[in-house]
Each structure stands twice: as C-alpha cells, then as structure tokens.
Design a protein around this nucleic acid. Sequence first.
DNA 1: CGTCGAGTTGAAACTCATCAAAGTTCGTGG
DNA 2: CCACGAACTTTGATGAGTTTCAACTCGACG
Lengths: 245, 245
Amino acid sequence: MSERAWNNNINCQNCSISQLCLPYTLDNLSLDKLDDIIERKRPYRKGEQLFQAGQPLKALYAVRSGSFKSFTVSNDGDAQITAFHLPGDLIGFDSIHSPTYTSFAESLETSMVCEIPFQSLEKLSDQLPLLRRQVMRLMSSEISADKQMLSLLNNKNAEQRLATFLLDFSERFKSRGLSSKEFRLSMTRAEVGNFLGLTVETVSRLLSKLHKSGVIQVDGKFILLQQIDALQQLAGVQLRSCLTP
Amino acid sequence: MSERAWNNNINCQNCSISQLCLPYTLDNLSLDKLDDIIERKRPYRKGEQLFQAGQPLKALYAVRSGSFKSFTVSNDGDAQITAFHLPGDLIGFDSIHSPTYTSFAESLETSMVCEIPFQSLEKLSDQLPLLRRQVMRLMSSEISADKQMLSLLNNKNAEQRLATFLLDFSERFKSRGLSSKEFRLSMTRAEVGNFLGLTVETVSRLLSKLHKSGVIQVDGKFILLQQIDALQQLAGVQLRSCLTP
DNA sequence: CGTCGAGTTGAAACTCATCAAAGTTCGTGG
DNA sequence: CCACGAACTTTGATGAGTTTCAACTCGACG
C-alpha cells in the first residue's frame, strides 16, 4: 500500500486531538506550516519500536491512535518504563538535549503516529513563537508529571499507587473524549508493575482485591471503575478542607 | 545596603558557571541581551523561599551560589522534595506550563540567585534561537534526570539509592570545579531521606554503615568519598563491557 | 542551664518481594 | 479454523528489607 494512502484526510487542521497536541493555540497559517513538516507513517504493530536509545535523534512523535511505552535500560540491563503515551501525547522530549535518543519507545498495540522531524521543528519554531511556546508548555507539563510521579513512588503504598494509576488513566481517557469509567489498559500487568515500582504479583493481587471489594470490575485488560469516589479515597486524595482548620 | 551593591562585577559575561547555565553557546551580543534582563538580588538566607506554589509565575531563577531545594506539597499535606539545586542550575521549569508556580523553592543555606523575569525571557527567546535552544536543552535534561530518578526509586534498594545520591553530588561538584571527593551536603538527613524515599533513620544507619566499612567518611554534613570505585559498585553500576559480549 | 532540633541506634512490626505452581489467554502455523 | 506452545495472569506461602516506635546523644541558642 502506498504511503500516500495513510495520509488521506489526516492533517492537523481536522485532527480530533489537536487541542492536546502541538497545534494547540496555533493560528491557521501556523497550523498549515506545521502540517507541512509532519510525516504520517504506516501503522505500527504491537511491539514495534519508534526508536531506540543510541540512535541519532531524528524526530519527535505524536501519537495519533493506539498507545506506546517509553522506557530506559540501565547499565545493569533492566528496563524501566518511564511513561505510557496515549493519543495526543508527544514522545521524545527526554532526548532533545542529546544527539541521540536516550530512551526507547515501543508500541503497545496497533498504533499510528505523526512523525515530526526534529530539524524542521527547530526551524519552524524559530518562525512561530506560538509553536515554540506550546513545545515549552508540553515539556514543562512533562516535568511536572514526572515530579508528581516521584512523589507517588516516595510516599504511597502499593494500593495507593495502583488506585492513582487507574484514576490517572480515567482522566486521560476522559480528556480524549472517551469514557472515564470504562476502558482498556493496553499494557500488561508486568508493565504496570514496572512503571509503578511493584511486582506483577502485587498488581494482580491488588486488582483482584479491588474487584472483590466492588470498587472496580476487572476483566482481563478491561477495567470498569464502579466507585470512583472510593477509588479516590484509596488513592490517598483528601479534601483540602480537612487540612485547613 | 543598596541593591546596586550586589550587582557589582556580577554578570553573565564573567560568570564562572555560565557553561552550565543559560549563557552556554551564546555569542557575545546575545549574552549582553540576556544579561540585560537578569536581576540580581540580595542573598537569600537559609530557609527563605524564592516562590511558593500558587503564586503568579514571575521569573525563573538561576543559582549563583549556595543551594536550594524544590518541593511540592500534596493534597494530604506532606512535602516531597523533587530536586536539589546547585550553582548554575535553573529553577522553575516545572511551572512554565502554568500561570502560577506549581512547586516551592527554598534556600538550604545563604545563597544568591539570578532572577530571570519570565516575560522577558520569552520575548528574548523569540529573538535569539540559540537561547531558545539552550532553554529546551536544559528542560530536556531535567526530564531525562527525572526519568533516571524514577528508575532509581523503582529498582534500587536503600543502600544503592544513597550511594547513587552521593556519586551524583560528587559529579555535580566536580563539574563546578569543586572537589569530587570531599564536599558538604547542605541538606539535613531528613531532606535526603525525603528525596530518596527513605526515612531519616535509614539514611543515618546507612551513612554509619558506609563510614564503618571505610568507603566514605562522615562528619556531620561533611562527606569524604574514600573509595569511589567501591561506592560505584554499591550504587549498582556495572561496566558496559560486562553486558556486551 | 534548659530546651529544641538534628542525628544516631536498637527492637519490633509490617509491607511487599520472592519463589513456586497452576490457570488462562494469545498468537502463530499447520 | 483449530491446536499448540509461549506469554501472561492469578493465587499461596515465606522471608527480607525498610518503616515505625522509642530512647538517647549532641550541639546551638536564648
């Protein structure tokens, strides 16, 4: 199938998730220019990699559909998942300080991406202050999210971590116009555990426990949040009013 | 004392740590422009805050001397230190996606900073591609460092975390032209523990253990790394050659 | 001189990892 | 389309590592 076929009717101007992505706040002229530098590739099958650590930094990627994981591999060989990416998310910000990628990105299911050649993006950013600011906003958001993650790992126990994880995905699906109560987790239990600093067994046990207690319903990769408020309690969320006397 | 007094002979052009900071790669003209927007304030005393979460985002800060901690406060009220900042480090990247600061920054000892008004920096970045790229490089480095931190917390035990922490500071002091073997940690044991996801007691016990084993010498806040290679072993560092056959 | 915060050390408790084993789903080739 | 093997998931028993609780020391400071 020709490359052209994938491009039909796909552009930033009509993209349903552009408000989460680079186009946000761009005027029409800027949008056209951005659209011009973006390459839309064939779908990636589950397990295919966008890039590997050490390869020359060629492009950033925006998820169009499906999902990806980013991960690093430490000197001693074990992998650490550093993020899960949903449509609208940008992949590669952790590498742009380096001539080569500093992490791996791999598809978790059949997925499509927009490839944004890094050189072109830099040049275009020189011309379009709005684009530049959106890039910085997105990078700053990623830093913020990472700090939150540090706090999660340092201060919360296994159950709180998993509850927070589920609520995070709930929010992210919601902001993409999908159900916040019912969704499919494209990653394995092992990947959830790796991300949260827990073992597969602990993740599995806790999902079973939450299921039995009626807070959520679990059917393989499908999750149904039945009592979101209870889940928020478990996640360690407390009302501000409890603290300010 | 007049504000002017602090400014004497302090500028980006002659700053000893400019290669770690924003000026890196800037030409002389750009450097002058950057220097123009920077405000240099009186020293901050230990415990004074640069900003608090919720305050309007006014400026980024570059550490000139001394040290700071950044921290967030979760809904349930406990603080999480997200970074320690040494001279040359920039503070505030986690907030520029927001109209207000998303974290706190507090001096750990008598310290000086360069205040970089955010509006001015944005305007100047529009004119100076080199500056813009350095900002992005620094933000990307911070993302990278945060990902490494995730990996540390998820995969390493208490001893490996502390060893890694000490080696990290060793490297950072070294790149600032200071001794990599002998330095003073300006934060308390509790702050080290908070950052590493450990309790004060664990940090104290491990420092004692490392001291007794002769790997390091501890005298209050002063640390002397006696066997850096042994410390690297404890940190879990292995040679690449062990993995690539 | 007494108090207060920081640091150290010990003993007990608890959470989660580890090891083991069985059950289930997925994907691929016949 | 089905069957087979591999990958993934679940559940149980045990133990290691870290937290928690408690007591004590030390130095700073009014």
